[in-house]
Design a protein around this nucleic acid. Structure first.
Lengths: 340, 340
DNA sequence: AATCCGTTGGACAAAAAATGTCCCAGTACT
DNA sequence: AGTACTGGGACATTTTTTGTCCAACGGATT
């Protein structure tokens, strides 16, 4: 059953939303027995007119009877509501979860896709696509978008699409090359996103570990300086979330640094910073790019990560408290909630 | 699976229509391999712009790839089309049947609801409702609608609903009282429909069997004459279809007349006329009202009848050839097709 | 090499639909 | 009799959809 809906959802992305509102309407009428349009609108948080259109449809379907004293479910309406109850529970289980996560971490918006990225590549893909949708919705003309690297981000980029081109937008890597495979580098991802959005992009080719002197020198480069300025003005930041130890290894930190990280309780990594359980920054990458204050200034900070194994890391980064939107999967969401 | 689809049909009739067009688009692209927007629009009978909006959505969903040489299904698009096949069949299986019936009898439009009215009252109800929808769609301001009696028509009337009132319309019985129970009389049905449509109605109270003399006298009555004129100018005619013998008995024809009917091969009855297998009129009711030429002149002649037992009668009346729209159920439709 | 056909995407006015708001004439209780 | 509901009508305004053209491009054919 879930499958049918998933299939249909590809063709009718707002299927579930419409289904949910209509069910809510019927359900509420079912509870009230007989109720008027305005009362109903108030209790469902809908404007009168919108509700009215829906009611007209439901009536045309013979699910509602309307009398001068208000509206009542018809026999088939009652039957429908009863049959739907278990289905609704199954279908909208995740939106409850989304709401729970949203509250727990004080976020603006949470998207949870079903499944576990650790288990299935298909879920990873959906996660990427869901991230893409969120990014698309947040995007306004002229925005600068700073993106991080990582495999989830790469998935997102690969399946990003947008209805109309956004020529006035810029995509930039949030940080210099972080020594990962090319496919997963922020530079690559920024450029792929830009191509798919019909937007422009800049790259930032800066080695990972820089001495203070080299850093000063390279920032003098007009090419680099410009890009860094742009990065720091980003209105949207999109980033993955990683496990601290894994990321440290992937970025080839020295063994001493890694030990130090562990000693400091580093648990999670995001946009080049390492966080402990409480969401406190315990370490930062020595490279050019987005600083913490830029993240605070950005209007849309979107975190994307999934898989039960990342649940704790996600919780840590969310506690840091500067994310606005979290896109994750069911397994990670539940795991993150376990870590309060 | 069956269940959720039935629920969706009730709750999301508008979305399912969208689903169908989107599926059609994908399906067609699947067949063509790679095809351009204009070609596609032509073969799908859609205007270019509408198609384009759909294509944009499908691409955003990652189902389509577009190249400069045209559009192709992506891997997930292909998968979707394949997975949807059974679902589409469930959802729209009857539309194939509708098309088949439409062609077989040269009609403008055919609606088939699932099930068999002989078996289940629920199907009768759906049939009535479907008839109501058709009538509603055909209705323009100012139209005169002539309706016949019968239980199916009564069902339709009872569940008729219309988004906005039609004050300029008239509902009239197509014929005088046909000696059935009040609930099923054309008069009753016309008045109920009119009330539900917010329209006006006239009744025609004329006994069934009239001598020529009495006929002339009664037609002099201004009240009667006016209504008859109105009936004869009807732009829309809605009628049930009955089995000849059953109808003859219900209308209390004399035994001799009934024998004569059988001798003449009368099989079906509709709007007071009896038809044989070939759709030829073999007898007519002796009462005031709609004549054959009025039916020919009417722009929308809508026949409503269901149940396997009526299949043959439906086929006979459709062969008569003056109906435009047929509303029936699955069992009757299949049965009617068996009688070519 | 030039031309032609079919492709996608951009642009924009016109038309249609959805929406927010009020109001009216009822009716069922108190 | 009065109050507090009801559904449905009306309508300006906003938003979305739709029809139409056109530009730029790519690949085949001449």
């Amino acid at each position: 059953m879930r499958k049918i809906i998933d299939i249909q959802k590809k063709l009718l992305p707002d299927l579930l939303q419409v289904l949910e509102t209509r069910y809510d309407i019927l359900h509420r009428i079912h509870l009230e027995g007989t109720v008027g349009r305005r009362t109903l609108a108030a209790s469902l948080n809908m404007t009168e007119r919108v509700l009215r259109s829906e009611l007209e449809l439901l009536r045309a379907q013979g699910l509602l009877d309307t009398a001068t004293s208000g509206m009542t479910l018809s026999a088939s309406g009652r039957q429908l509501v009863e049959e739907m109850e278990p289905i609704v529970k199954e279908l909208f289980g995740l939106s409850d979860l989304e709401e729970e996560v949203r509250r727990a971490f004080g976020l603006k918006r949470v998207i949870v896709v079903p499944g576990d990225s650790d288990e299935s590549d298909h879920v990873k893909l959906e996660l990427g696509r869901a991230g893409g949708r969120v990014l698309r919705d947040s995007l306004s003309s002229g925005d600068v978008v700073a993106v991080m690297g990582g495999s989830t981000m790469a998935h997102m980029a690969r399946h990003f699409s947008i209805p109309s081109q956004m020529k006035e937008n810029w995509f930039v890597p949030a940080r210099g090359g972080l020594g990962e495979s090319v496919d997963y580098q922020a530079n690559t991802i920024a450029s792929e996103l830009a191509k798919r959005a019909g937007a422009r992009y800049r790259m930032l080719h800066v080695p990972d570990h820089l001495s203070e002197e080299a850093y000063q020198t390279i920032m003098q480069e007009p090419n680099v300086g410009e890009v860094v300025d742009m990065i720091r003005s980003a209105r949207i930041v999109v980033h993955g979330i990683g496990d601290a130890v894994t990321m440290a290894r992937r970025r080839k930190l020295t063994e001493e640094t890694r030990d130090e990280l562990v000693k400091d309780g580093a648990l999670a990594e995001a946009f080049g910073y390492y966080f402990d359980r409480q969401g406190k920054v315990v370490h930062r990458m020595a490279t050019v790019g987005l600083r913490l204050e830029d993240i605070e200034a950005a209007e849309h900070v979107i975190g994307i990560a999934g898989g039960a194994s990342k649940g704790e890391a996600i919780a840590a980064v969310m506690r840091f408290g500067h994310d606005d939107v979290l896109v994750t999967d069911e397994a990670a969401a539940r795991e993150a909630l376990r870590h309060i």
